[in-house]
Design a protein around this nucleic acid. Structure first.
Lengths: 243, 243
DNA sequence: TAGATTGTTAATCGATTAACAATC
DNA sequence: TAGATTGTTAATCGATTAACAATC
C-alpha cells in the first residue's frame, strides 16, 4: 500500500523534492531520474529512492519518475490538496513579515486571522487583515477546518498563548518563540529558533577557526571543490521583494 | 580532553541548554541536576548527560552541575564570547523583521550591514542602519572579523547573492530562501524554510486525520497527558512586542 | 536484446535510551 | 556512612549508503 509510516527524516525532505519537481515541471520535463531529481534537491540518489519508496510511489525502471504524477503525489501528502487555515499570534516585526509571506499562500496555506493584545497593534490592518484581540480567537477558528497556529510572541507569553490555541482546537503549532512548549498528546509543535541557528553557525565557525590554528595544520584542507560555475554578474540580482 | 568532535545532534541542542541554564541562573540557582535541567530544556536526562559529556564538562556526582560554570562553558562553545558580525541581504518583509530582531544582539550577534538592490529600499534606514546596494558588501566585511551572512532574498537570487557573500569571505550563511545553495567546501550553510515547516505540520495533521477515520479506531488514543497546569488567565498575556 | 534505472537488501553509521558502577 | 547523581557502558533504534537484482 505504501501509506504506512513515513520516517520523520523523509517527511522533512518531501518539501524539497516537491520544489525540485515543480522546477522540472516548469522546465517541461515529463520524466526525471532519481539521479537528476536528487541532484536538484541536493541529496544523494540512493536516499531519494529510499524516501520515495516509503511513499509507495512507483517510478519506472529504466525510465525514471513521471514528473507530474510524482509532483501531484507528494503535493497531496504534504496537504497541498487541502486548504489550511493559518492564524498568526503576535504581530510584531516577525508577525508582520509572516502575515505578508508569499510562500504560504502559494502552497495552500491561507492566513485567516492575526491576533495580538497590544493596544497599539489591535485594529491595525496588516496585509489586508485586521489585527484582533486574542479573545476573538474562537470566532475565527472553525471546528471543521484544519488550522495551524503560528506563534510569534515573546517567549514569556508563548506557553499561555499556546494553551489558548490548543483550547480553541488547534492541533498544529509553529513556534517562533525561544521556549519549550508543553502540549497535550495529539498536538504537534514545530519550532523555528532564529537565534539558535546563528549560534549553531557560530559553533561551527569557531571549530573551523580553532582547527586552523591547531597543532596539526589541518589534514589537507579538502580543496575548494570545483564549484558549478554560476554567472555572478550575467544576471544582476534584483533583490528585495518579499522572500 | 573533551574538545573532540561534538555530534551534530548535540550541537543543535546546546542553545536550548544555554537558555534553560540562564533561566536557572536568573532564578538564583547555584547548581542544577541533569534531571531538572533536562526537564527545563524538554529532553530526557540521559540525553542531556550524554550531550554534556561530549563537551567534557564535568558536573559533580551526587550534586549536579554548577549553573554558572556550565552556562559560561556552553556560551563559550556557542560563540557568545566572540563578537559576531551579521549582514542581512534582502530587506523585504522578512529582512526588516530580522534586522530588528532583539534575540540576535542579546546573544552577541551584531547586525552591521543591510543590503538590497531594490531602488525603493536602498537608502532607507531600517533599525538604525542604512540599506546599502550589494556592491558595497566589501566595504562592510572586515577580513579579520567573523561574519555571518543572512539571506532573505527571493529564491531566484539566493545562489547569486550567496556566491557574492562567499567571494567576499563569508563562510557561514543562514538561508531563508527556499533553494538549495551550492557552496565550496569550508562554507557552512543552514537553512530555515518557513513554508516547509507548515507543510511538515500539514503532513502530520493529515496523517492524524486519516488515522482517525481508519479501519481500526486508533490504538487507544494515548490519553491527553495530565498537562502541568498553566494559569491561563492568571497573567493576562500582553503579546505584540518584537519576538 | 542491450542499456538504463528503479526498488530493495544488507552493511554501516550515528543517535537515543536505560541501566549502573563510580564517586561526591 | 547513606543518599544522590554523575559519566559511561551496552543495547536499541533509526537513518544513511552502496551495491545489485529486478525489470522496463
Amino acid at each position: 500500500m505504501g501509506t504506512v509510516d513515513v520516517p520523520e527524516a523523509t517527511v522533512a525532505r518531501l518539501p524539497q523534492y516537491l520544489r525540485a519537481l515543480s522546477a522540472f515541471a516548469d522546465a517541461g520535463a515529463r520524466t526525471v531520474s532519481s539521479e537528476a531529481l536528487a541532484e536538484a534537491a541536493g541529496v544523494g540518489s540512493a536516499k531519494l529512492r529510499k524516501d520515495l519508496s516509503h511513499l509507495g510511489s512507483y517510478g519506472t525502471r529504466g525510465v525514471g519518475y513521471d514528473v507530474e504524477q510524482l509532483r501531484r503525489q507528494i503535493a497531496d501528502r504534504l496537504g497541498q490538496t487541502t486548504s489550511w487555515n493559518v492564524v498568526i499570534v503576535g504581530i510584531g516585526n516577525l508577525g508582520h513579515a509572516l502575515a505578508g509571506y508569499g510562500g504560504f499562500a502559494s502552497r495552500g496555506f491561507r492566513v485567516v486571522g492575526l491576533f495580538d493584545d497590544g493596544p497599539q497593534v489591535v485594529g491595525e490592518v496588516v496585509s489586508g487583515l485586521p489585527v484582533r484581540p486574542l479573545e476573538e480567537l474562537g470566532e475565527v477558528l472553525r471546528p471543521g477546518e484544519p488550522t495551524i497556529g503560528v506563534l510569534a510572541v515573546p517567549a514569556e507569553h508563548a506557553q499561555g498563548v499556546c494553551d489558548r490555541l490548543v483550547a480553541a482546537g488547534v492541533t498544529s503549532v509553529l513556534n517562533f518563540a525561544p521556549t519549550v512548549l508543553r502540549v497535550p498528546a495529539g498536538v504537534d509543535v514545530r519550532k523555528v529558533d532564529l537565534a539558535s541557528e546563528l549560534q549553531i553557525l557560530a559553533f561551527h565557525a569557531q571549530r573551523k577557526a580553532t582547527r586552523a590554528v591547531a597543532p596539526l595544520p589541518a589534514p589537507a584542507a579538502p580543496a575548494a571543490a570545483p564549484l558549478p560555475v554560476h554567472p555572478l554578474d550575467a544576471v544582476r540580482p534584483r533583490v528585495g521583494e518579499v522572500v
